[in-house]
Amino acid sequence: MATSRQVLSLYKQLLEKAYKFDNYNFREYAKRKIHDSFKEHKGLSGQEQINSLYNSGIDSLAQLQRQTSISQMYTFEKLVVEPLDKHHH
């Protein structure tokens, strides 16, 4: 059974992972996707539905882990929309 605390913790972990993408487009997409998916099901109350979504979130976290690792193996040019003074990424 997934509690709201666990859901928030999953949300945090997903976002932290998403920031690890070096590529601007991947990073922004991942952040947007995570944000929108959680917001979409914000009002959900059925425990079964919450559990199944929570589990798919866990799978997505594993997927993000793999994809960000791969992403970090390549170098990306900064896009013009990205601030240059950013101290990391």
């Binding site: 945090k12 976002l15 914000k42």
Partner: peptide
């Protein structure tokens, strides 16, 4: 902000 946005702000 709701609880999700707060987490987002902290991240």
């Amino acid at each position: 902000l709701d609880s999700l946005d707060t987490v987002e702000a902290l991240v």
